[in-house]
């Protein structure tokens, strides 16, 4: 702003034109690969399209009637909410806990941080392969480790039966994504002024009281943002669940993302899948608006 404050209106207009010119390629690509497909998804949702031939005809609101009256969408919405709530809770609890520990002066702190950070950046394919090997019912390290520790008597079928499959998926999700919480919280912890803790200590507050009265209020803002962002990302997660269980057993871990994929490319009903995806987006819109309003307010 200060760069243009002393300029003439003519220069001002030239700058505005340059600004538009610079953003133009981005807008073009955006319209082509995001805005158009988004509108097309809504358009497709009122057709009935057979995926292999891509032939279809107009069916009006039929797909949405099926969405509202059939049980598939609601079942998947329920599964998605259980998965999101479960994995998000673990991510936050472990994330904040680990951040507090790593904030302390421990041995080889930077190595510890790297090791904790790593799963987040790891490819989901790699994470899933490793965990499927760990969960293997015959030779898996998970069952044998837990048996050697005396926690289990018998090997468990981790991904093939309920509720184990949901627990397994939630656990792997928590393992993969909790480092996000660790990094964000750790960064915030480092900015809390030390004198707040000093003051609390002088007032006679113990470690637990200091956590609730000093640390938590300071973390509240960053935690709200993390929870919103992670809720959105967990809600739409596809790779991890699809690769771990494929939505099974039957449909007990089939989240909305998996339902859309299955409908479009498994059952070849593209129009119905588009309708499901629009429904899913509408549910997510609540969180999205909350997050966007929050971020907009800050900047």
């Amino acid at each position: 702003m200060s760069a243009t404050a002393t300029n003439t209106p003519r220069l001002e207009r030239a700058y505005a034109r340059l600004g538009v010119l610079l953003i133009a390629p981005t807008i073009l690509v955006f319209s082509l690969v995001i805005v158009y497909p988004l509108l097309a998804a809504i358009y497709l949702s009122v057709f009935s399209i057979y995926t292999p031939t891509l032939q279809g005809n107009f069916v009006g609101a039929d797909n949405y009637v099926k969405l509202l009256t059939g049980h598939e969408f609601w079942n998947s919405l329920g599964v998605t909410l259980v998965w999101t709530f479960g994995t998000l809770t673990l991510q936050i609890v472990f994330g904040v806990g680990m951040a507090l520990l790593l904030h302390q002066n421990i041995w080889f702190r930077s190595l510890a941080r790297s090791l904790v950070l790593f799963p987040y950046f790891l490819s989901t394919v790699v994470a899933v392969l490793v965990w499927r090997w760990l969960f293997n019912d015959l030779y898996g390290a998970m069952n044998h480790g837990l048996m050697q520790l005396g926690i289990l008597d018998m090997p468990l079928d981790w991904l093939g039966s309920m509720p184990n499959a949901m627990i397994g998926v939630i656990l792997v999700g928590a393992w993969k994504y909790f480092p996000f919480v660790v990094i964000a919280v750790l960064a915030r912890l480092q900015t809390i002024p030390e004198h707040l803790y000093e003051a609390a200590r002088i007032d006679g507050a113990g470690p637990v009281a200091r956590f609730w009265d000093v640390t938590m209020p300071q973390l509240r803002n960053v935690l709200t943002v993390i929870i919103l962002l992670r809720a959105i990302w967990d809600f739409k997660e596809f790779d991890l669940i699809y690769l771990l269980t494929g939505g099974g057993p039957v449909t007990s871990t089939q989240t909305l993302s998996l339902l859309v994929y299955q409908e479009a490319f498994g059952l070849n009903r593209m129009g119905q899948a588009a309708a499901y995806s629009v429904g899913m987006m509408l549910v997510m819109l609540v969180f999205m608006v909350l997050y966007i309003r929050r971020t907009g307010k800050e900047s």
Partner: peptide, 27 residues
């Protein structure tokens, strides 16, 4: 830079940043 629609554009970027892939994949 200052021009009309700049704020809207920034919000649109943020919105697409949160969009699920499965919505876009069919089209």
């Amino acid at each position: 830079f200052r021009y009309r629609g700049r704020e809207t554009l920034a919000m649109l970027v943020l919105f697409t940043y949160l969009l699920p892939s499965v919505v876009l994949i069919i089209p």
